[in-house]
């Protein structure tokens, strides 16, 4: 009886457990699901849907340059939480680059803000030294833009949040939107949860 009185609470404590910090697989199912913010798995899921849709549409494969030259335009965060939209955009860029489908240009950037200023300076100096600085710069075949919207609602104690990811690709030769897609992620519950 004494043994049981020790073993049973110990097992129950193990189940309920005080949990020490642990590393988690960023692609796994043990991540926290939040009702008040966009989670990393939401960004990955949205980026995955966008890349699949963009590749399936086949517009990048028809560009004059191969891989296509991409300019990154405005991607707005219109949710009620603050985050860097690169959490989405960088995943899309990496997937397109590693897949050999597109490369991002620094020659033309929004507000002339260079992601890598030193790289840009080095390019300008090389062009000057090579005598090619008067030749036209390479312009992007497409520009990528988007918005992240949200919608929050409640029924009794159940809360629901929807994050709407919208992205567009403009063909710079025609100024036409040649690809667009939208991915909505809806989360519902009473409180944040560990794992899904």
């Amino acid at each position: 009886m004494h043994r049981t009185s020790i073993i049973v609470p110990a097992l129950l404590a193990l189940i309920a457990g005080c949990q020490n910090a642990q590393y988690q697989d960023p692609q796994g199912t043990t991540l926290i699901v939040s009702l008040n913010k966009v989670d990393i798995q939401d960004f990955a899921s949205a980026a995955d849907a966008m890349v699949n849709s963009m590749v399936e549409a086949g517009v990048l494969a028809k560009a004059a340059h191969q891989p296509a030259l991409l300019g990154i335009s405005k991607v707005e965060n219109r949710t009620d939480t603050q985050f860097d939209t690169d959490e989405l955009v960088k995943k899309i860029r990496v997937a397109l680059l590693k897949g050999g489908r597109a490369q991002v240009t620094q020659q033309l950037t929004l507000g002339n803000a260079k992601e890598d200023p030193l790289g840009d300076q080095a390019n300008q100096m090389k062009r000057f030294q090579d005598g090619t600085d008067r030749q036209p710069i390479e312009l992007p075949d497409f520009t990528l833009s988007g918005k992240i919207l949200f919608d929050r609602t409640k029924a009794g104690s159940t809360r629901q949040v929807a994050y709407i990811f919208q992205m567009s690709l403009v063909d710079t030769a025609t100024n036409r939107v040649v690809w667009e897609d939208e991915k909505t992620i809806v989360k519902q519950g009473n409180q944040n949860q560990v794992g899904f």
């Binding site: 990955a44 899921s45 995955d48 997937a95 590693k98």
Partner: peptide
């Protein structure tokens, strides 16, 4: 082949 966007989805 690793994908930058691969993740478990529900």
């Amino acid at each position: 082949i690793d994908s930058a966007t691969a993740t478990w989805q529900n």
